[in-house]
């Protein structure tokens, strides 16, 4: 046993991890969420807005991180739509545009058919240039955007009328998986124009620790990974979900199941590894 574990082929670990993720998915394990302060703060920020307030939804993630960020993007869209906010979607990642399309199709077109493109929401699409885009649009939106994502001139989009820069937005909502993302938004939009702009964000677990230093002055609320998404989802659904919540608004909470088992597995592995380590130490293999 000792020697087996000592020279454990990593494929065994891979198998265990596979099972740890697959089983909860198959059995649809789900646990209740207790929202913590940051998710609450995000919720409150959006709650504080009034119907008709303009909101910029910047979706800077890709299919790879869709698993982690998709649910919160969906919930954000749902929440904004429910609040009757004017939604301006944009992306700094090439595939972010698809993420926007996804959410528009999944949430707005499916559950809010009454919202009209160009009046209630607009998809500005992807622009290359990383944080350079932010730098420009924070003072001059039209310098970069002449059409929306579908090639329609923004002059002919009713809700774009009078929008010269994104400082006119009541709130920025950013969902990001890395660079360019929340950090850049904070640095180039929020920090120089802290009097004019507010922002909440959702990010992957890995970037979350990097964003904590911006809380709460530059970033009042933050959703960290699937856990944050689940908490926020819980908040939004408790408030607006009604009796029967659609499956697509439970994604985050559903994904907490595999996460639980996977985390337990990792803890178990670390403990086993350390038992081995101390056994070795006692044997004097390791000095």
């Amino acid at each position: 046993m000792y020697t087996f574990l000592k020279n454990l082929d990593r494929r065994w670990i891979f198998l265990l991890m596979f099972l740890a993720v697959a089983i909860p998915i198959l059995f649809e394990l789900q646990f209740p969420e207790h929202p913590t302060g940051l998710a609450q703060a995000v919720f409150d920020e959006i709650e504080a807005l009034q119907p008709g307030d303009p909101v910029l939804l910047a979706f800077d993630y890709d299919p790879a991180s869709e698993g982690e960020l998709g649910p919160m993007a969906t919930t954000f869209t749902y929440h904004c739509a429910k609040k009757g906010l004017k939604m301006y979607f944009m992306a700094l990642w090439p595939v972010g545009a698809q993420m926007i399309d996804d959410n528009i199709a999944k949430v707005i077109k499916a559950d809010f058919p009454e919202l009209e493109y160009g009046k209630d929401y607009v998809n500005l699409g992807y622009k290359s240039g990383y944080e350079g885009v932010i730098k420009v649009i924070v003072t001059n939106l039209r310098g970069l955007y002449t059409t929306d994502s579908y090639g329609t001139s923004i002059d002919s989009i009713p809700m774009m009328e009078g929008v010269t820069d994104i400082r006119q937005m009541k709130l920025l909502v950013n969902v990001s998986a890395g660079y360019p993302g929340t950090t850049e938004w904070v640095q180039y939009a929020i920090t120089p124009f802290s009097k004019d702009l507010r922002m909440v964000a959702g990010c992957t677990g890995i970037t979350a620790p990097l964003l904590y230093p911006y809380i709460p002055n530059q970033l009042p609320g933050l959703l960290g990974a699937i856990k944050g998404a689940a908490e926020y989802e819980q908040l939004v659904m408790d408030a607006y979900g009604g009796e029967k919540v659609d499956q697509k608004y439970m994604k985050a909470r559903q994904r907490m199941g595999p996460q639980l088992i996977a985390h337990l597995l990792i803890i178990g592995l670390i403990i086993v590894a350390n038992i081995l380590f101390f056994m070795e130490k006692r044997k004097g293999v390791v000095r």
């Binding site: 009034q50 008709g52 307030d53 009328e161 009078g162 006119q168 009541k170």
Partner: peptide, 13 residues
Amino acid sequence: RRRLPALWYGTWL
């Protein structure tokens, strides 16, 4: 003024 409905909303808020 026409261009700034957002500002107007802001005032209203």
